[in-house]
Design a protein around this nucleic acid. Structure first.
Length: 482
RNA sequence: GGCGCGUUGGUGAAGCGGCUUAACACAUCGCCCUCUCAAGGCGACAUUCACGGGUUCGAAUCCCGUACGCGUCACCA
């Protein structure tokens, strides 16, 4: 193992949150910045009570859709497995290290009743810090009680004095007094480790060089370092990331009904665009470039440019970036992508690729496509009032004159191509002494029935076909003559 | 409450002591283009960097304090 090693270590407790996904992205980028870097997926399922069925599959699926390919993980294996913590529990890993830590003086057995601790906590209020009497038990004494069948936990032993400090790549040097650190539970009474212990043991055993995680762990990092030190292990480089916020007060969370990754995909956002956007939440590129593919992100990424304050997730900006991604695609791939959305709205026999072209410069999300196209299959009812348009200098009278002229020209077109339709129709304004808008605005309305449409009169006429165009034109002329 | 962290416009942000009369992007508002809506082009939009002191010839940038916010103090991660 010569390169950097990072890990994404989610708990399978539900949907993939945007904040989580961003942490995964950053962990991936940190690793891939190094040509030999390895990105690991580890499943942290030590809280048996919070497990949600199917959640692990959502994690796999999300990573796959995003292209965040892991090099080692539960599904593909690797040299330092197993990669699921519950499996590691069964392999006895945590208990073995807990016992070692106890002998090294970094932890102790504790037999205190949970209720007793709670009661003391209520009595002491906010300033509560548990002073564990079991700390003074000898190891032999404690082991004898365990042998006698007593329930126990393993609790971290923190030095009473001194300070612990460490360097975080994002937040700089952090120093805390050991006296402020709680002696948290490392091994629960069900034999499972808590995050506090499992993350240290696993990160060390898996050779993690760079720990990328949310900043909610910043204040407990000193406790973890005490464990690393007790074992004599190297402390990894820390990259704590500020949260992704819903608004200035609260984090983005599924609990509040905020959009998850899969919700956004369902709303018509591209995974790549989502990743592109969230990369920018909390990280600033060195240049003004804003659109990045995942590979470009790997090139441009720099831990030093991760910010320190929480960033509010702005769906409007996401939409704009998504639109840019959509518009940047070549027509063939775009057509393939949007075909289902077009099919959903258009059942008739029209050239779907031409429809795609007309929609590409307008849609920012996939989901807005169907509603843009509802006028192809059915010619909507509309009011003649729509012919009155100040900017185009039109009204029903002008429209009637224009449409009759258009009808005549269109009837005479045999070569039904965009070019011909354009050329022939463009002869009209001059002939009628009218402005382009006075002819084309009514025509577009007359064949679409809508005030605004994707594409102009020529494009719509071409797609509708000569016959349908004339049919609608006749209907509209009749409506105006009434 | 203790401890830790943070505070540049509506939003993401650049800025690292003079080049800043604070980049860039989204949003918003104008104008141009134009057969609509978009897209595209152009322009407007923080006299000011939470507040108060200090250091300095000079501060958004360094120091101190205050306020506010967030995190943490679980047999959750």
């Amino acid at each position: 193992m010569t390169g950097l090693r990072t890990r994404f270590a989610p708990s399978p407790t539900g949907y993939m949150h945007i904040g989580n996904l961003r942490t995964a992205l950053y962990a991936y980028l940190v690793a891939k910045k190094d040509p030999e870097g390895v990105f690991i997926l580890r499943i942290e399922d030590t809280d048996q009570g919070r497990l949600v069925e199917g959640a692990t599959d959502i994690i796999y699926e999300t990573m796959k859709q995003c292209g965040l390919k892991h090099d080692e993980g539960p599904d593909i294996g690797g040299p330092v497995g197993p990669y699921v913590q519950s499996e590691r529990v069964h392999a006895g890993i945590y208990m073995e290290y807990a016992k070692k830590l106890i002998r090294l003086g970094g932890a102790h057995y504790c037999f205190c009743d949970e209720e007793v601790i709670k009661a003391q906590k209520e009595r002491d209020g906010e300033s509560f810090k548990y002073d564990d009497p079991c700390k003074h038990l000898s190891i032999e004494e404690a082991e004898a009680r365990i042998a006698a069948g007593e329930k126990f936990v393993v609790r971290q032993t923190i030095p009473e004095s001194g300070t612990t400090s460490f360097d975080d790549e994002v937040f700089g040097t952090i120093t805390v007094d050991n006296s402020t650190l709680d002696e948290s539970v490392l091994i629960k009474s069900d034999g499972f480790p808590t995050y506090n212990f499992a993350n240290v043991v696993d990160d060390h055993l898996m050779g993690i060089t760079d720990v990328v995680r949310g900043m909610e762990y910043l204040s407990s990092a000193p406790k973890y370092n005490l464990i690393y030190e007790a074992f004599g292990w190297d402390i990894p480089r820390y990259i704590h990331c500020p949260p992704v916020m819903k608004d200035e007060h609260s984090k983005l969370s599924k609990r509040n009904g905020d959009a998850s990754f899969q919700d956004l995909v369902a709303k018509g956002y591209l995974p790549g665009a989502i990743l592109n956007y969230i990369a920018l939440l909390g990280w600033a590129p060195e240049t003004n470039q804003e659109i990045y593919s995942l590979d470009e992100l790997v090139q441009a990424f720099n831990v030093k440019r991760i910010g320190t304050n929480g960033a509010i997730f702005d769906p409007v900006k996401l939409t704009s970036i998504n639109g840019l991604w959509l518009r940047n695609m070549d027509l063939d791939s775009y057509y393939e992508l949007v075909r289902p959305y077009i099919d959903q709205a258009v059942k008739g026999d029209f050239d779907k690729k031409k429809i795609a072209a007309v929609v590409q410069v307008r849609a920012n999300t996939l989901n807005e496509i169907p509603e843009m196209l509802d006028f192809f299959d059915t010619f909507p009812a509309y009011s003649n009032d729509l012919y009155t348009n100040k900017k185009s200098k039109t009204n029903p009278e002008v429209a009637l004159t224009s449409l009759k002229a258009c009808r005549e020209v269109i009837t005479g077109i045999d070569d039904w191509t965009l070019q011909t339709i354009h050329d022939r129709l463009m002869e009209l304004p001059a002939k009628l002494s009218m402005k382009n808008g006075q002819v084309l605005f009514p025509l577009r309305l007359a064949i679409s029935g809508k005030q605004s449409t994707p594409g102009g009169a020529f494009e719509i006429a071409e797609i509708l076909g000569k016959e349908e165009t004339l049919r609608r034109l006749d209907l509209s002329i009749a409506q105006l003559e009434n």
